[in-house]
């Protein structure tokens, strides 16, 4: 038996979320004694690192049909890899690629699936996976009833563990159906770490008064090594790019630290960030709802507080 992990790549690199998924699979395998096989589609120059996080072997699927993101075809390749490796558990990252591929595979294999897992499965007796539901306001413990089980792991939900194995790499070319979907144009807005995988996030809202004031937010993010994000009105007014919008309709994130500056904390915004491990709110209004969801707060004017934070963060980096 084996545990199969889809290791997502972008711009010639295996993603951080893929290493988390591999490490998650390897932690399940520690108990079950299964072998961990990582499947990589497309080119990546850091395949060796998959062993570090627990892969015993890597199946590198090569097909020119997979040059573009083709969820249907990747699901087909994963189904073949699962058959080759006699896989009983298949793991994805719950990111934009996993959200596309995992459900297709579940339907093709008639396998029970839990998307957005936040913890290791409980395997004594029933096979139960914990996931966030109601936009982060609760958790569900979901029992999978089928022999083949598919899980997608929420990025940054679990610390990735190192196993320091040396994984063998094998190239495979699977016979795949013809693609019916043609990619015409790619608009990659950021080659930085995607927001969903960032451990630290500095986010700002309408309280910043205009896009010209984002310099200090970017400076603070840089000093902390954090990604930047924003609230819905800010992205709707085009002060910041759409992919930075976190909240109910934007992306949901789960960083270790979320610093909200000049964001009141409407329930729709909180739905996208309430899974963060530590939340800091900085707002002029002491009654802002964000202070109820935050662990730390500063009541004050962002234009005075943030520059001081930047200085303090820089000083800290020099220590």
């Amino acid at each position: 038996m084996s545990i199969l992990v889809y290791a997502n790549t972008a711009i010639n690199k295996v993603h951080k979320s893929a290493f988390e998924a591999v490490s998650y699979g390897a932690q399940i395998a520690e108990k079950s004694g299964d072998k961990v096989t990582a499947v990589v589609v497309g080119n990546a120059d850091n395949l060796d690192s998959l062993g570090k996080y627990g892969a015993d072997n890597v199946v590198h699927v090569t097909s020119d049909k997979l040059d573009d993101f083709q969820p249907n075809l990747i699901a087909e390749a994963m189904q073949k890899a699962a058959a080759d490796n006699n896989s009983s558990i298949i793991i994805f990252s719950h990111d934009l690629s996993g959200k596309s591929i995992a459900p297709i595979l579940a339907a093709k294999m008639n396998a029970g699936i839990v998307t957005g897992a936040v913890d290791l499965p409980q395997t004594d007796g029933d096979f139960i996976v914990k996931k966030a539901v109601f936009s982060g306001k609760a958790y569900a413990h979901v029992k999978i009833n089928t022999a083949t089980k598919i899980i997608s792991l929420t990025p940054n939900a679990l610390e990735k563990k190192e196993f320091n194995k040396s994984a063998s790499i094998e190239s495979k070319s699977y016979e795949l159906a013809d693609s019916r979907l043609k990619v015409k144009e790619q608009k990659i807005q950021s080659t930085d770490l995607p927001l969903t995988e960032a451990e630290l996030v500095v986010s700002a809202g309408r309280g910043l008064k205009g896009p010209e004031n984002w310099g200090m937010i970017e400076e603070l993010a840089k000093a902390l090594g954090a990604a930047t994000a924003c609230s819905r009105p800010v992205s709707d007014m085009d002060w910041r790019p759409h992919h930075e919008h976190v909240g109910q309709t934007g992306v949901a994130i789960r960083p270790n630290l979320y610093i909200a500056i000049g964001i009141s904390g409407a329930i729709q915004h909180l739905a996208g960030v309430n899974q963060s491990k530590v939340i800091v709110a900085i707002n002029t209004d002491p009654e802002a709802p964000f202070f109820k969801a935050a662990d730390y707060g500063i009541v004050g004017d962002a234009f005075e507080v943030v520059p001081k934070l930047v200085e303090a963060a820089k000083a800290m980096n020099h220590d």
Binding site: H141, V142, N145
Partner: peptide, 22 residues
């Protein structure tokens, strides 16, 4: 059914927000 919810859980209540002077 290939899967089913066995139980739900609410997250632990958030402690009070610790305030820092501006």
């Amino acid at each position: 059914n290939t899967s089913e919810v066995a139980s739900y859980e609410l997250p632990p209540a958030k402690g009070a927000c610790k305030m820092v002077s501006a």
